[in-house]
Nucleic acid binder design. Structure first.
Lengths: 140, 140
DNA sequence: ATATGTGCAAAGGGTTTGCAGATAT
DNA sequence: ATATCTGCAAACCCTTTGCACATAT
C-alpha cells in the first residue's frame, strides 16, 4: 500500500479521493481494466463516474504512474509502473501475473537491438497460456 | 505473395475477393490495423465495406490465419500467422518490424514457466522504441 | 442449388468532451 | 482564492448485428 498522495503530488497532480481509490484498486489486484475498476469502485462509492476513471487513467499514464498492458483479445489492463517484468497472461480467466526477468534476458536481446539501430525504450514480454488455477479447475 | 485461395479453402472458408485483398494488404505491409486496411482498400475498391473487413478479421483470427498484435497506446494490428518472432514497435510512427527470436530465448524463459506450472501457448515479445528511420527524421 | 459472404444501415458499446458545481491546495 | 478535478449528459467514435442481395462452391 503506497503513499498515493505523495506519489500524485510529486507529479503535480492533486491528491483527490477518486485518484487514490483508483490507484488502490489497481495495486490491490495488480492489473485491472477500466471496466473492472469501475465495477469494483461502484460498490463502495456508487457516485464515482466512469468519465473520471477514464480521465484519470489517461492522466496517470501521461505522468508515468500507470502503465498500460495490452492483451490479445481483451481490453487493456493497467498496472502501477514498476521495474520491468514479464507478464504471464491466462487466456481462460484473463488474469495477469508479474514475474521478474530471467537474468540473461538482457544479453539475449541486445544484439538484435544493436543491429537495428533501434532506440529501445521499453520491453514488453507476455507469455500467454493457461494458469495453474484454470488448469486445475478444468480437470475437476 | 501467398496462395490465399488455397489457404482460405483449407480452413473451410470461401475464397472471396474481399478476403483475398484483405490478406494481401496485410501481407504487403506486414502489420495493419483495421482502419489502415480499410483506407488502403477503399482507394482501389471504393465499395468495400468496413463491416466486411471486421467480419473477416474476426473470422480469419478464429481460423488461425491472422494474429492480433496489440500495441500500447494504439489500435491492434494484424499479421499473417507465422512462426514466433519478436516485434520492434516504433513509438513515433507506429511501425512494426518482425525479427527472429534470438537462439537462447527459449532456455531463458523455460525455468519461469516450469516453476509456475503454466501451460504456455504463445510468447509475445515486443520491444518499444524509436526506429532508425524516425531517429534520422528527427535529427534533420 | 445452396450455404456463405457482402454491403448497407441501424444498433450497440466504449471512450471522450464540455460545462457547472465541488474540492485540494 | 483559484486552479484543478468531478460528475453528468451529450457527442463521438469504433465495432457488431440483421437483413436482403450477391457469390463461391
Amino acid at each position: 500500500m503506497s503513499d498515493y498522495a505523495t506519489l500524485l503530488k510529486a507529479s503535480g497532480l492533486k491528491a483527490t479521493f477518486q485518484r487514490m481509490i483508483v490507484l488502490e484498486t489497481i495495486e490491490c489486484d495488480g492489473h485491472r481494466s477500466v471496466e473492472e475498476i469501475h465495477e469494483v469502485l461502484k460498490e463502495s462509492y456508487p457516485s464515482i463516474s466512469l468519465a473520471t476513471i477514464y480521465k484519470n487513467i489517461t492522466m496517470l499514464q501521461e505522468k508515468g504512474i500507470l502503465t498500460e498492458v495490452p492483451i490479445v483479445g481483451r481490453k487493456s489492463k493497467y498496472e502501477l509502473s514498476k521495474s520491468e517484468h514479464i507478464h504471464l497472461v491466462c487466456t481462460l480467466c484473463g488474469g495477469v501475473e508479474d514475474h521478474p526477468y530471467p537474468p540473461q534476458s538482457d544479453e539475449v536481446l541486445r544484439p538484435l537491438i544493436a543491429k537495428e539501430q533501434f532506440a529501445l525504450q521499453k520491453r514488453d514480454i507476455n507469455l500467454y497460456g493457461i494458469c495453474h488455477l484454470c488448469q486445475v479447475a478444468s480437470t475437476s
